[in-house]
């Protein structure tokens, strides 16, 4: 069920094919978006979008995102339009560049009342951001002895309280990456975490770049101004 391949995702594959295979960011786990000077790893975020579209979108909306926003991840306008054209909206028409990411059609009672949250800015809302999402997606284990599971819940060591209504959805080769990166479960989790980091804060890289320049400029200005005050104004 998770392996619904949309024709337009092949178009996405064309973009990815141009990029080199992913570097190893899993051991130890790190994200290019981490840290004060971090920026989005576009190749990883593109792969993460593929995971989102193939797996997560079956249950989660990301209504703040539009298909045109994918251009910021390095897709051309035509490629983004191709992705959108392959998405069927509830009324049967195809999505366009200006449509928000399609909301899943699911009854509210599907998970015993636990509504899958909108993922547009989940990375900003949950403490730990990308690290937490990665830990959540790879954190399913068998429940320790003595824990009574609620019906319809799964044991997850990253989820607060340990019992989550989201089933384990990622497994090896749930998607096929066109850039040749092996689609292991942890690689998929890391990529979708980078994608969601971008979704929550699309300007992260730009913000850090401008910030660095502003800090350098105002540090120099402060030094000059303070020196001038010492020397001249005194």
């Amino acid at each position: 069920m998770m392996r619904r391949f949309f024709a337009p995702l092949l178009a996405l594959g064309l973009v990815l094919a141009g990029n080199a295979q992913a570097q190893d960011t899993l051991s130890p786990l790190h994200f290019q978006s981490d840290g004060p000077l971090g920026g989005i790893d576009k190749a990883a975020a593109q792969r993460g979008f593929l995971v989102y579209q193939t797996v997560c979108a079956a249950c989660h909306a990301a209504s703040a995102l539009h298909y045109r926003d994918l251009e910021a991840l390095g897709l051309t306008s035509d490629q983004a339009a191709g992705v959108a054209a392959g998405v069927k909206l509830a009324d049967g028409s195809a999505a366009t560049l200006d449509s928000p990411f399609k909301a899943p059609a699911m009854p509210a009672s599907a998970f015993g009342g636990a509504v899958p949250p909108d993922l547009s800015s989940i990375a900003a809302q949950r403490p730990g951001g990308a690290q937490y999402i990665y830990a959540l997606l790879t954190g399913y284990t068998t429940a320790p002895d003595g824990v009574t599971m609620l019906p319809g819940h799964f044991y997850n060591k990253a989820f607060p309280g340990g019992q989550v209504a989201m089933p384990p959805v990622l497994r090896d080769n749930a998607v096929t990456y066109a850039d040749g990166t092996p689609a292991t479960q942890s690689q998929e989790a890391a990529d979708v975490a980078e994608f969601l980091t971008w979704a929550a804060d699309p300007n992260l890289g730009t913000r850090h770049q401008i910030g660095l320049r502003a800090v350098i400029f105002f540090t120099l200005l402060s030094i000059v101004a303070i020196a001038a005050r010492r020397g001249g104004g005194g």
Partner: peptide, 28 residues
């Protein structure tokens, strides 16, 4: 006076520095 102006400039520069650190690296 020129002294006061230089004083303002120094204050403005330091304030802008703190502002940039907060706005670009800790916006929330």
């Amino acid at each position: 006076s020129p002294g006061v102006c230089l004083d303002h400039l120094a204050r403005f520069a330091v304030l802008a520095l703190i502002f940039s650190v907060l706005a670009f690296f800790f916006p929330h």
